[in-house]
């Protein structure tokens, strides 16, 4: 009898996730075919992320524009339910996010958990705002004449968000949630390492009844993508959260945004992402519409 040599059972290799973009409810690769390596602060390779191009940005704006009217028309109650659903889905994946954040940001697991918790709580906070905005921000105006006159907030349209590099999940949440709660659709740029939690967040959104296109996530370089979004004439507003305050880039983007009078939220140095944001990121993306009608018989 021949004796077979004893072979140790092969160790199982894990199935790695391919990180793609989140556009129009789908997860495409960058049309450019490019990717970039995401590394831990220690320098260790974690994964490749899709490096979005200007054409991906263009597609994302198109998807956002297509989705926006339907999202705005959904009842505020429904929008609130969906934001809350995102919180539920995040809670379920709490550990997954914590590990991912710990890895990409180089955080202790406790701190990463704390960030996930803060992000979940933030989704819940904004979810509750959806059907209160018009009550808090609207007005019935006593005009001097026989007219009914009501002011109410309406979404500004398509908002481009430049998310901060860190805190990854909390930063992204803190720019996306306030923009969409009032009925806008967004294109968010998740820079560098933020790209990994961002795409995972996209997966959460894709399974949270959020209509495709309401949130679009581009991973890659803010410096590369931002000018295209800032100058895009079909983008109505721009949040510069992820750009260094006082930088040349911040100024250039604001100048580009002026071309079609985008509403711009300027970056602020040392912004505390954990602090209560109030409505500071909600209001800039809402218009006030005032409707008059005569009162008579």
């Amino acid at each position: 009898m021949s004796k077979k040599p004893a072979v140790a059972p092969a160790p199982r290799s894990s199935v790695r996730k391919t990180y793609k973009l989140y556009i129009g409810g789908a997860f495409p690769r960058s049309e450019s075919g490019r990717s970039y390596p995401v590394t831990a602060p220690s320098g260790e390779f974690i994964a490749n992320a899709a490096q979005a191009s200007r054409k991906d940005a263009r597609d994302a704006v198109r998807a956002a524009r297509a989705a926006q009217p339907g999202w705005a028309k959904a009842t505020a109650y429904n929008r609130g339910q969906i934001l809350y659903r995102i919180a539920e889905m995040l809670e379920e994946r709490r550990d997954q996010f914590a590990h991912q954040i710990a890895e990409v940001e180089g955080l202790e697991l406790d701190a990463a958990h704390a960030q996930v918790d803060a992000a979940i709580d933030r989704w819940v906070w904004y979810a509750g705002w959806s059907d209160k905005l018009s009550q808090v921000l609207g007005a019935a105006n006593s005009v001097a004449g026989p007219y009914w006159n009501i002011s109410s907030p309406e979404p500004t349209g398509v908002v481009a968000l430049l998310a901060p590099a860190t805190p990854t999940l909390l930063g992204l949440t803190s720019v996306i949630a306030p923009a969409i709660v009032g009925g806008n659709a967004v294109v968010a740029v998740a820079p560098d390492a933020c790209g990994l939690p961002a795409v995972t967040l996209g997966e959460v959104m894709a399974t949270s009844d959020l209509p495709g296109g309401v949130v679009n996530i581009l991973t890659g370089s803010t410096a590369e993508l931002a000018p295209w979004l800032a100058s895009h004439l079909d983008v109505n507003a721009l949040d510069l959260a992820g750009v260094e305050a006082g930088s040349e880039l911040a100024r250039d983007l604001e100048v580009a945004a002026a071309e079609n009078l985008k509403r711009v939220v300027r970056p602020s140095a040392g912004y505390d992402w954990e602090a209560d944001p109030g409505l500071s990121r909600v209001k800039p993306f809402l218009e006030t519409k005032t409707v008059w009608h005569p009162i008579g018989i």
Binding site: A144, K289, W292, H293, P294
Partner: peptide
């Protein structure tokens, strides 16, 4: 549009917010 006049037009009042969407300003 920031102001919608229904069955009237060009009414103004100090209590009534006025201003535009899009390239009409902010």
């Amino acid at each position: 549009a920031g102001v919608v006049w229904a069955n009237t037009f060009n009414r103004f009042d100090p209590t009534s917010p006025f201003g535009g969407y899009k390239e009409s300003g902010y």
